[in-house]
Simulated assay, not measured.
Amino acid sequence: MAVALAAPVAKLPRGAGWWYEPKFDGDRAVLWRRDTVRIQTRAGRNATAQWLDIATAAMNLPPDTVLDGEAVIWRDGRIDFGAVRSRASARGRRLTDLLHRYPASYAAFDCLMLAGQDLRPRPYAERRAALLDVLADARPPIQAVPATDDPEVALDWYEHLPAQGIEGIVAKQASSPYRAARIWKKIRHSETTDAVVVGYIGPAGRPRRAAVRLPDGRRVLSQALTPLVAAEVARLAEESGPGQRARTDDGEEYTATGDGMLVEVEAGTTRHATVAVLRVR
């Protein structure tokens, strides 16, 4: 099932009919409770094995229920997205170990089916009521995300919850149905962090993108490099000499270089596949 998404905006939308939810920093997960439980990723992949603790708890939900939400992992009082990605990519013994060491939770924000009835054409306000109803007796690890129609409360969440791993606010119109498009709005915190350049894409003399290693160990590709940063990466490529081919955590191929170049990246873009390199340190 294709999922609804949120378009980034600079300011929190205000006015009649807007509702707001904290944006949890996890992996998108559609939870299907039919005869058994299946957990689907944003891309449509079956990830039930990676989130087996959530799937087991979901067997207590009414049959023929489908929820939309985020799979998250809490560590030391905050959401740890690095632990989420480790769990999502793990297999075999490592996955079994992570299931025990870092139990997951499910932050549900929408109810798409209830008692076999498709609720997607219904307004958000009705789907929200259905979500609260179906989760009325639920206990962790499955819970509904908070929601408010007060923009001041939403801004208070935005300002004070980042330390807990809340990466922003999602705004939704009370009258809007659920569609596979960017029907919601989101504001996110944009912070910077350091990363290490480990490779590049394109000619050695004119690299187009950099491969970087983030603080949590993930290797990802950057967005298009600015001319100044590209020149520095080209210098690194020259010093490293002919590089071997390597792959990012998402399987994208790049030419490897030696470590040593530190760059500042926009942390608000590191959650998914690419980062924005701002400058060389």
Rank of each mutant, 00 (worst) to 15 (best):
V197Y: 03
D250W: 10
E191A: 14
W184P: 10
A88Y: 05
I187Q: 03
W184H: 12
G202A: 08
Q117E: 14
G268H: 04
I166L: 10
Y200D: 06
P123R: 01
L112Y: 06
T56C: 13
A174F: 01
P207A: 05
L236R: 11
L225R: 01
P22S: 01
D249G: 15
D68M: 03
R219M: 07
E252Y: 15
R87M: 05
V265C: 07
P242T: 08
R78N: 10
A115W: 07
Q244F: 13
E70G: 04
R34T: 07
A237K: 12
A171I: 08
H189A: 09
L262M: 13
S89T: 12
A129N: 11
G205F: 04
T56G: 13
Y200M: 08
R235P: 06
G168P: 02
A224H: 11
D216Q: 10
E253P: 15
R93L: 12
G260F: 08
L221C: 10
P203K: 05
R34V: 09
V265I: 14
A115F: 06
L5E: 08
Q223I: 03
V197G: 08
G165V: 02
F109Q: 00
S105L: 08
L221I: 10
R42D: 00
L228S: 15
F24L: 05
A16V: 10
V265D: 00
